[in-house]
Design a protein around this nucleic acid. Structure first.
Lengths: 335, 335
DNA sequence: CTGAAAGCGCTAACAG
DNA sequence: CTGTTAGCGCTTTCAG
């Protein structure tokens, strides 16, 4: 019942060379005579030798694995990022340790700790709200970190995302150009700077640009759920909103269905623009017009960025923030 | 610029004890005098010492990380399982290395290899179709493995899932009881035994039980996509189907919308039952009746199962297969 | 209850 | 081009 692990030493003995040589061929070091390389390779194959990555990690101080902190894999927004991350990670021979945090600062801190204990070479963080404590922990850790699809309000840690301000400006401007004077602003928690800072700023900007006064009654802060949107209609109606910008697709589907269930015609009587262009936007009827974000790419670029940071210790020259282009797709929920 | 890592040795020196003692307190070994424990703890705290999990892994031959092979995190079915897995994993102090395989046998084999190289303590595999080669690789590896929400047609590998045969029987029986004589069977690839073997068997069973002849024209093998379902209506119509069992929610949404767009009334003229009860079922109109599977629980139970396997080497007594109960929820897409 | 010492399997100088 | 020799940081007997 023993777990007869065969080691580099076994290979060395069988091939009648030193461990160093075996190590060299395993790591593709060119300084090995083709003949001996061939011999070693044969033995490796015969013995079915598989290098122990843990030992290698201890000796080389590199684990070729990166930690990924995600609020919830079940959320398509984040899982899309995660997919992008994993794809380029494996492209660069890295593996991903995935940990759900529920956006809970306590869990995030805890997870970050075990990730560091496991000696990950880098970390990708997705989270709505970067607390000061966490930022401090990041600073202390000498491990490269990048925020994916998230922002650091204080801009201290590197990140990749889209220009949320501009995206919202464009969306809301469209709504206003359709004649809407009262456009609702519906998002998740304002504690997330994406909502409370950038998107809101964009919203206010366009309003000002069009000489419309900002009315707090048109701002709805909810959580990111279908249900939250579904029950929102009465409130929207009494606020006399005739259109809405929504910060999340699931939430938008709820708003849409809530309105429809109340007999409201979309887009004739009420227009909706959502933010993530996930599959949901095409599944509901009418299909939702949406800001488009290159979710997969944000993940992919984040990981690519991280690989660069993990290679050179000198990143001083590079920008801390990478902004990817957003877009807009018109569907049937707007005129 | 140096990465001043502080080790167990530093702690030992500062606390004026041996490494062994430090190790004991770190690992909660009771054989330490409270006084010395306290002293060590203080030093650990003062030095901000964090045990190196890699070194620990090498010495103890346990990494407290398990590998998770998933077709695509972006798919809600699988990400739900993954969430369940991660939650109980972290409950047991394990971390997850998550790797996407796209259900591609080659990638699966490759990923499995690197997972083993990284000395994971166990593996959870989600995949549609377990090839013989992979099964062989599993057998060779001395690492515990369990299939989550997936089946091994040959029943050699431990797994947890629902009774697919019975679930489909129930769903289709319901449709037949509503007077439907021609019920379509729409699923993803038949190469997945869940579809080609279990579900299809369930479908045929009920048909037989109700004296209805099996008609291959009513069987639609597509891929798991919204689009695939959307374009299916013409074929369904010409096959004279009046109801359908669908093996995937996204696919079902496509079928539903395709039918609706063709002016078909659901459920009056066409009934639909889908299989995974994901959020999608509640977002479309009419909402979809669905078989319910405890996805999160399947993941959670799989991981729990795995922890048991990782602890005792003796698993001979236990069942290889854990079957979780499925359910059925009636919504508006059936009469 | 505590310490000494031998590795875990591999990489990385450093010689040659 | 190849071998020797130290470790990497921690766990784990084995003594005492």
């Amino acid at each position: 019942m023993e777990k007869q692990t065969i080691t580099i030493y076994d290979v060395a003995r069988e091939a009648a060379v030193s461990m160093a040589t075996v190590s060299r061929v395993v790591n593709g070091n060119p300084n090995v005579k083709p003949a001996t390389r061939k011999k070693v390779l044969e033995v490796i194959d015969r013995l079915d030798y598989r290098p122990n990555a843990v030992a290698r990690g201890l000796a080389s101080k590199k684990t070729t694995t990166v930690g990924v902190i995600i609020p919830d894999v079940t959320n398509v927004y984040f899982s899309s990022l995660a997919r992008g991350i994993d794809d380029v990670a494996s492209m660069y021979k890295y593996n991903i340790i995935l940990a759900n945090s529920d956006g809970n600062p306590q869990k995030e801190a805890q997870v970050l700790n075990t990730l560091l204990a496991k000696q990950v070479d880098g970390i990708i963080f997705m989270g709505n709200n970067l607390t000061d404590e966490l930022r401090a922990q990041f600073a202390r850790a000498k491990t490269p970190i990048v925020l994916a699809g998230s922002v650091d309000a204080k801009n201290e840690v590197e990140s990749v995302h889209v220009d949320y301000v501009a995206a919202v400006e464009e969306a809301v401007a469209d709504l206003i150009n359709h004649g809407n004077k009262r456009v609702a602003f519906i998002t998740g928690p304002m504690s997330d700077p994406i909502n409370g800072e950038y998107r809101l700023k964009g919203y206010k900007n366009v309003l000002a640009k069009h000489g419309i006064e900002y009315d707090p009654d048109l701002v709805f802060e909810t959580d990111y759920s279908y249900r939250a949107g579904e029950v929102l209609w009465p409130a929207l109606a009494s606020a006399k909103a005739t259109a809405a910008f929504v910060g999340d697709d699931e939430l938008a589907c709820g708003v849409l269905n809530g309105a429809k269930d109340a007999g409201v015609k979309v887009p004739a009587e009420f227009e909706i623009i959502t933010s993530n262009n996930s599959k949901l936007t095409e599944i509901v009827r009418p299909q939702l017009s949406s800001i488009t974000q290159p979710l997969y790419d944000i993940g992919a670029v984040s990981m690519r960025f991280l690989t660069k940071m993990m290679n050179k210790d000198d990143m001083s020259s590079a920008e801390k923030t990478i902004e990817l282009p957003y877009g807009y797709i018109k569907r049937a929920s707007t005129k």
